[in-house]
Computed example of a mutant assay.
Amino acid sequence: MKRYAVYAVPGAHDADASEAVRLRAVAEAWFARAEVQDLTRDARRYGFHATLKAPMRLAPGRTETELCAAADAFATRRGALMITAPRIATIGSFRAVVPSEGQETELTTLASDALRAFDEFRAPLDDADRRRRRPERLTPRERELFERWGYPYVLDEFRFHMTLTDAVPAERSAQIDDALEAHFQPVSGVDVPLTAIAICIEPSPGAAFELLSVHPFALRSPRENA
């Protein structure tokens, strides 16, 4: 069964700023590197993105067309944002691109608004969903959020990030960190405008996610919000 997700994908829109296009191109080149294929399987499958509404099956009676229309309506009510001075960070045992410290407020608000706006499209959790998430590994708060929203890392547990690796073994950490620092050096610290949300689709279980549609914000540049 298909799953759909609402993502932030810098560089996915034809009219995106050059900084966003370049960041996405550098990330895709990272995923293509032969020496990290074993450490990027899941990251590659989900694609370079930040999660706004986690992958979900559509609720009974809801359609892909309705989801895309809702994304249009959501996007036209918003102005563009800035991913400020992105950098490489370690989150748990994986690596990701994150904004500079203290610069996540507007991005967190975007994610919490998307979480609520698109929840009507989410099918209820089933036993397979719960087994896949392994709730016994979650904190009590994460379990509470998972049961309510279908994903544990939302609201107060949310952190805007764009994943670059799967779990990195300790013995390879220094090697991978050095490789990431060198690979992303040309775009490190360069502000990246976020001017749209995207709907991505997993066409069948375990398949790579594909970009289905891009929904531009009403204001195309963060500077226009001033």
Rank of each mutant, 00 (worst) to 15 (best):
V9Y: 00
D16E: 09
D16Y: 01
S18H: 13
R22G: 02
L23N: 06
A27Q: 03
E28R: 12
R33Y: 10
A34R: 08
D42Q: 09
R45A: 14
R45I: 14
H49F: 12
A50F: 04
K53Y: 02
K53W: 02
A54Q: 08
P55A: 07
M56V: 08
P60F: 10
T63Q: 05
A71F: 00
D72P: 04
A73D: 09
A73Y: 08
A75Y: 13
R78H: 13
A85W: 03
A85N: 06
R87E: 12
F94I: 06
V98F: 04
P99F: 02
P99L: 04
E106Q: 14
T109L: 11
R116H: 06
A117Y: 11
F118H: 01
D126A: 08
R130I: 12
R130F: 03
R132I: 03
R141W: 01
R143D: 01
F146S: 01
E147P: 05
P152L: 00
V154H: 01
D156K: 15
E157N: 15
E157R: 15
T163R: 01
A170C: 08
R172Q: 15
Q175S: 15
Q175G: 10
I176K: 05
D177M: 13
D178E: 15
S188A: 15
G189D: 00
G189P: 05
P193F: 01
T195K: 03
I197N: 06
A198K: 02
I199L: 00
P205R: 14
P205T: 08
G206D: 11
G206W: 13
A208P: 05
F209Q: 13
E210H: 15
L212R: 04
S213M: 05
P222A: 09
R223I: 13
E224M: 07
N225R: 14
A226I: 11
A226W: 10
